[in-house]
């Protein structure tokens, strides 16, 4: 009988929370979905350590250092951070066997912004309304706040040796890792028209222009700098409508805000576009100053993209890499 190891948070140089795929069914009482900003990366982190897609992982903006009290299989995904097991540099997007007592360190490189750490067994902490996702603004889910040095997280039971046997040669699809490596080249955010597109006569501005991610971007929303949508200023306040992740709001200053996982459930700003979920995952990976442009897509295309995305998030397919052996 194995006892599950624990995770001790040694250092956080940024903002780290525990997240899963979100809290569904409570938007009608004002509770946002929350969950990983980049769901596909979180799902793959879990797949690489033999967890279920919806298991809780650590999400970190910036650097973090964790120590495990026993052996476990870990994987780091999201962007392309530097990863160390003690002093040995290892790869992101690959299963790692981490011996108890060793430190796992994740350092940002500027490629990607939000990293996911999955640990075999999954993080086990307070579930609120069906999810362990931390919604810090309401102090709910898991610890109800960002992680701090000294925090100890429990893990679900998993036998690290047999997990390792099952996942050691698992790798994510190459095109997913490539997409993360190429984030710096600028992201095309595919979107359908939003709820108020018909009221914004200069919507073209948004589709023609190049935007950059503003520093004031967080789990609620990513603000974009660039040519403002002037018609948004003339609309004033609209009756509050239900909003969702990926809604591109244009407040009276006309500068777009793409709503993220912790966004409020209703809003009174004009919604110009609705970016599709797989592209919102990638937007989450952009650092301030990185470039975005919007591209319109049809409802049918969007629907088919969402279908395949949901399938990949729920059942991430890994490929098997031939392992190299020496000696």
């Amino acid at each position: 009988m194995t006892t599950a190891p624990r995770v001790r948070v040694a250092h956080v140089g940024g903002y780290a929370t525990v997240q899963d795929l979100g809290r569904r069914g409570y938007r009608a009482v004002g509770v946002p979905v929350s969950g990983a900003l980049d769901r596909l990366s979180a799902a793959y982190a879990n797949a690489l350590v033999g967890n279920r897609s919806g298991d809780a992982v650590v999400e970190v903006f910036g650097a973090i250092s964790l120590t495990l009290t026993g052996d476990a299989v870990v994987a780091v995904t999201g962007g392309h951070p530097r990863v160390f097991l003690e002093d040995v540099e290892v790869k992101p997007w690959t299963p790692l066997y981490c011996e108890g007592g060793r430190a796992l360190r994740v350092l940002p490189t500027g490629i990607g912004r939000v990293h996911y750490i999955a640990i075999s067994g999954g993080v086990v902490c307070e579930r609120v309304l069906g999810s362990s996702s931390t919604y810090a603004r309401a102090g709910m889910g898991c610890l109800g706040r960002p992680l701090r040095p000294g925090d100890v997280l429990e893990l679900g039971t998993a036998d690290p040796a047999s997990v390792w046997n099952g996942v050691a040669d698992s790798r994510p699809p190459e095109e997913l890792v490539d997409a993360h490596l190429r984030l710096g080249e600028g992201l095309v955010l595919r979107a359908t028209p939003g709820v108020h597109a018909h009221l914004l006569e200069d919507l073209e501005t948004l589709l023609r222009g190049h935007y950059v991610v503003a520093p004031e971007s967080d789990r609620m929303g990513y603000r974009l700098e660039g040519e403002p949508l002037r018609s948004a200023g003339r609309l004033g306040r609209l009756p509050s409508i239900p909003t969702d992740r990926g809604y591109v709001q244009t407040p009276p200053d006309g500068k777009p805000i793409v709503l993220m996982s912790d966004a409020q459930t209703t809003g009174g700003y004009a919604v110009a576009l609705h970016a599709i979920p797989p592209d919102v995952d990638l937007l989450a990976q952009l650092n301030p100053g990185q470039r975005v442009r919007f591209e319109l897509m049809s409802l049918e295309e969007a629907e088919s993209e969402v279908r395949s995305y949901l399938e990949r998030v729920e059942r991430p397919v890994v490929r098997r890499e031939e392992l190299e052996y020496w000696g």
Partner: peptide, 8 residues
Amino acid sequence: TLGFTPGF
């Protein structure tokens, strides 16, 4: 309605 923030 309820919304904006939890329980508003």
